[in-house]
Design a protein around this nucleic acid. Structure first.
Length: 595
RNA sequence: GGGCGCGUAGCCUAGCCUGGAUAGGGCACCGGGUUCCUAACCCGGCGGUCGAGGGUUCAAAUCCCUCCGCGCCCGCCA
């Protein structure tokens, strides 16, 4: 083992970058050219590629020197002295290409992976406290996959932020105050034989041991439709909403919400999504913080009372679209509105967390901007950061609608995925114990669904197609899981030996090995970037790239059947397994030792 | 009408913030690969006016402007 005395740098690329920057600056200085390290750094391109590990386009520097780019590049080449972690320099037209010292990079990378293990790619904990609020669906029935996009973006971002060092808490904001929740209570507090016929019809064939969110949520669409044409009953629901606000909710109200919520959250748990805290909207009403917000808003600079006693804020100065310059924050009857309660909630978050992040569907975009305007109106300097994602739609171009029957339930998707995965396992493997088959099928199914939804940038609209969602090949969760299982399988062989794995970096010089090492080395930066730019999809892209590189290596380079290189190659496989496993953990995709 | 987002091969997608060298993947399709560490894999091929036009620049998928198309929002609902 190439044991290092000092603890390894958690970012294997950094020493190369430091050396390279210093050498470029030194070369420019030697040429008598201005060499601001910050300028040079911004010019350097570390994306890597077939040309080398870093590139410097010299156009700008050449222009300043009043020399054509290509000769300028040659001139730099003549004076630059690659050393340390920089192994090679070459000029190609207007570009200088640099290669890292592969042996040093390999040594440093593998040592970092083995020393840090599950912590490789993670950054040291910071004092920064953060809160990610996500999902926050009304407790009125099961999840459809549109809302699952919210949950998966939020959960993956939370994992990434934790890895990046944040002290992170996740929130599910439970709306038990509005009309939606009231409708559930309205119908379920009536004996079923008194339900209107068209609502009772929705319970036909319902089994009492059905999952609770499905069972209790069944009448919801019918109730919603029924109330549109039945003003008397609609008034009952309106009265109920008023009772919720004044603290006179029927005793069953919260229990019903809780019951449905447990069913909903149970489905998310299968996907590895969990929450640190459930925050109930009604708590902000009952603890007086909503009243406090309303009183502050009434004293705010742009507040005014309407004719019927309602309070509104003129937000024209906050740059909102012109239709939204008049924001009502309190009804004529004195009750609060969603936006006011949300302000109370956000103030409570600001009191506890330095960084507040909300995952919101694009339909909440205007709400987000209004919230910011009202926070400004209150003199509150802090703002939440919003991650806005686009809807998942169905192929005929429609929104995912519960009433139109176009919604795809998460539970339905998972059931379908598990069934398909089970078939695959049974077709590929023989003699597995039934519980092993189920374990793999569940992991493959949930891995496929999680990966499929999180792989696309949040701002892209997504059209749901069964055949894409259930793909186990190519750019998919199971592809990554398979590569992990493959690496695990190699390491399980007796010939692979036991950890700790010793290696000699100068034996890992095949192009496929060098490429793998470079990808492994990039992981800590991928984690950092995905967390801070809320680009969780880049984690999915990374996992695929690493898996793909590993498969290429696996086919091209013998490991256990090799000679003097064997131990080093085994170590490389172990490093891939560790890194890919860490990436899968961040994606919430279950690692499989075999599949 | 206004605001926000999106538009990259038949389909899906990365890159856009911070401009840089032949735009990276996947699916589908065609042709190969398993006496050998898991073929949910690999190799090769096919396929691109980066929505259109203009501008800035030595250099534009990337920045700016205009237009077109699609989605969402514009409640004393949440």
């Amino acid at each position: 083992m190439a044991a290092g005395k000092e603890p390894p740098d958690p970012d294997p690329w950094r020493p190369f970058e430091i050396d390279l920057l210093a050498q470029v600056v030194a070369a420019l200085t030697a040429m008598g050219e201005p060499a601001d390290p910050e300028v040079v750094r911004s010019l350097l391109n570390f994306d890597g590629g077939p040309q080398g590990d870093a590139a410097l386009p010299v156009h700008r520097l050449a222009a300043a020197a009043k020399v054509p780019p290509a000769p300028f590049a040659e001139a730099v080449l003549a004076v630059i002295r690659p050393r340390g972690n920089v192994e090679s320099v070459s000029a190609q037209g207007a570009y200088l290409n640099f290669g890292a010292d592969s042996v040093r990079l390999t040594d440093r990378t593998l040592r970092a992976v083995f020393a840090l293990g599950a912590g490789y790619g993670h950054h040291s904990p910071s004092a920064e406290t953060a809160c990610v609020e996500h999902t926050s669906a009304n407790p009125t029935g099961p999840f459809h996959i549109g809302r699952v996009r919210n949950a998966l973006i939020g959960d993956t971002l939370a994992r990434a932020l934790r890895a990046a060092g944040s002290q992170l808490t996740t929130h599910y904001y439970v709306d038990d105050m509005g009309r939606q929740a009231a409708m559930i209570t309205w119908i379920w507090t009536k004996p079923m034989d008194q339900w209107p016929e068209e609502i009772r019809a929705t319970m036909e064939g319902a089994s009492p041991d059905e999952k609770r969110d499905h069972y209790r949520g069944r009448p919801y669409p019918a109730v919603s439709a029924y109330l549109k044409t039945h003003p008397v009953e609609a008034q009952e629901v309106a009265d109920l909403v008023h009772r919720l606000e004044t603290g006179n909710a029927p005793p069953e109200h919260r229990a019903l919400a809780q019951e449905i919520l447990e069913g909903m959250v149970g489905s998310l748990a299968r996907l590895g999504v969990s929450f640190d805290e459930f925050v109930w909207e009604s708590d902000f009403v009952h603890n007086g913080s909503v009243d406090q917000v309303l009183r502050r808003l009434q004293r705010a600079p742009h507040a005014r009372m309407e004719e019927n006693g309602a309070w509104a804020i003129d937000t024209a100065t906050y740059g909102l679209p012109k239709e939204q310059t008049h924001v009502v924050v309190q009804r004529g009857n004195g009750t609060s509105l969603y936006i006011s309660r949300d302000i109370a909630y956000h103030l409570s978050k600001f009191a506890r967390f330095g960084w507040v992040i909300d995952i919101l569907g694009q339909d909440h975009q205007l709400h987000a901007r209004t919230l910011n305007a009202l926070l400004a109106e209150l003199g509150e300097p802090r703002r939440p950061e919003f991650v806005i994602y686009q809807d998942i739609t169905v192929p005929d171009g429609g929104r995912m609608s519960t009433r139109g029957g176009s919604a795809v339930w998460l539970d339905q998707l998972l059931a379908e995925a598990v069934e398909r995965a089970r078939k695959e396992v049974l077709a590929r493997r023989e003699g597995l114990a039934p519980e092993e088959v189920e374990h793999i099928a569940e992991a493959v199914a949930t891995g496929a669904v999680r990966y499929h939804i999180v792989r696309v940038a949040p701002e892209k609209p997504v059209v749901f197609r069964w055949e894409d969602a259930l793909s186990f090949e190519g750019r998919s969760g199971p592809f990554c899981q398979y590569s992990y299982a493959r690496a695990s399988s190699v390491l399980r062989k007796p010939e692979a030996g036991e950890p700790p794995y010793s290696f000699e970096a100068d034996r890992l010089t095949e192009p496929d090995e060098a490429a793998l090492v470079r990808l492994i080395a990039r992981f800590p930066r991928v984690v950092e970037q995905s967390a801070h730019r809320a680009h969780v999809h880049s984690l999915a892209g990374y996992a695929h790239d690493l898996a793909e590189r590993f498969n290429r290596f696996y086919h091209a380079v013998p490991v256990l059947r090799s000679g003097d290189e064997k131990a080093s190659r085994v170590a490389l496989v172990a490093a891939v397994r560790q890194t890919l496993g860490n990436a899968l953990d961040l994606l919430g995709v279950t690692r499989l030792e075999s599949m």
